[in-house]
Simulated scan of single mutants.
Amino acid sequence: MNTQLTVNELLDPLHTIIGVVENKQTLPILSHVLIQLKNGELTLTTTDMEIELRSSKKIQAQEEVSFTIYAKDLIDIIRKLNANTIIEFIIEESKIYIKTNNNSFELNTFNTAEFPSLPKISNSEVIKINRLTLKELIKKTSFSMGSQDIRAYLNGLYFEVDKNNIIVVATDGHRLSIGEIKQDNKLSDKKTVILPRKAVIELTKLLDKDENTDIDIHLSENYFHLKTQNTTIISRLIDGNFPNYAQVIPSNYENTVVVNRQDFLESLQQASIFVEERTKGVKLAFKDNQINIFSHSERGQAKTKIETNNFDKEVEISFNIHYLISILENLTTDDINMILPSSDSQSCLLSSIDDDTYQYVVMPMKI
């Protein structure tokens, strides 16, 4: 069984699905990509048994072929070749021979019947959402996800969907990001799921094209399924109870500061040069309608100052400086609200003025 494909036909879909493949797999076949050609459509599939990615493309070839091959070896072989280069695949029972230009390669293959696939989703709820809206929701919240936390439910992105809203939340236990949009959803009941971190990363890549189209998300009890025109992602969900995020949002607005976002961001970026690597802490001293920003490390110290609007109380509070910077980079309005906690055990809330689409909560720290 032989076939010929061009670099151009293979490379884009291979780039799309390669992120699922790990260098060290418990099953050797999980290091492979399943390549299928049928009815003039080329489909590439990878999986790690938790996430499955498929990318399809219409091509000229009409033969019917199916085989597996080491995904990262294949991409290394073809990535530097001219887009129109023809690659010949000679497929035997346990070996595949690749011939291109004057080069030839021999790789192992598996029976395609052994290639695992995630179960087909049944009894799912379908939510229609604009692609760019979903892309923004994920981008402006996912940076607060946990990473390798022993509490598995923190290592993912929480989706809460009802008839009128889509809420996306991420937290690592020290900061929390909330994005909420209002739209009509044809749901019988509220649906909540936690999408794993790796799936969020792959989904972000999938949504990266600026296409202003609607897409369907399928949510079942155990799986998340999203399909665009040429690519499908299926992921298992994290089993666990996400924290009650509403409980940590400040309700006392007594200490509300209005500050210019860009001035605040630039001052923090300057102060970050001298932040101690261990604590990453910065001290903010509010006094006389100003914020004095202090940071120090063994190399030196920084002091910067910005103006505030109508806040003359004296408050001193410290935060992880990188948390504040990432929040300010994701807010977009000229001025923002900063609601300061009245005690060390309370959190700080940052949001745009007159726009609560995105809210960010960060806990103070002691330095």
Rank of each mutant, 00 (worst) to 15 (best):
L187V: 05
L187W: 06
S188H: 14
K191W: 01
T192A: 10
T192N: 10
P196G: 01
A199K: 04
V200R: 02
E202T: 03
K205L: 06
K209Y: 12
E211C: 05
D214F: 15
D214A: 11
I215H: 10
D216W: 10
D216C: 12
H218S: 15
L219N: 08
E221I: 12
N222G: 07
N222Y: 13
F224N: 08
F224A: 10
K227F: 07
T228D: 11
T228Q: 08
N230L: 09
I233K: 05
I234N: 12
D239H: 11
F242L: 01
P250H: 08
P250V: 05
Y253I: 13
N255Q: 14
V258D: 04
N260C: 06
N260H: 06
N260A: 09
R261T: 04
R261M: 02
D263R: 01
L265H: 04
L265M: 00
E266L: 12
S267N: 07
L268D: 08
Q270P: 00
A271F: 04
A271I: 07
F274M: 13
F274D: 00
V275G: 14
T279L: 12
K280L: 12
K280H: 14
K280G: 00
G281M: 05
V282R: 08
K283V: 13
K283A: 09
N289S: 04
Q290A: 13
I291Y: 11
N292C: 07
K305F: 01
K305H: 02
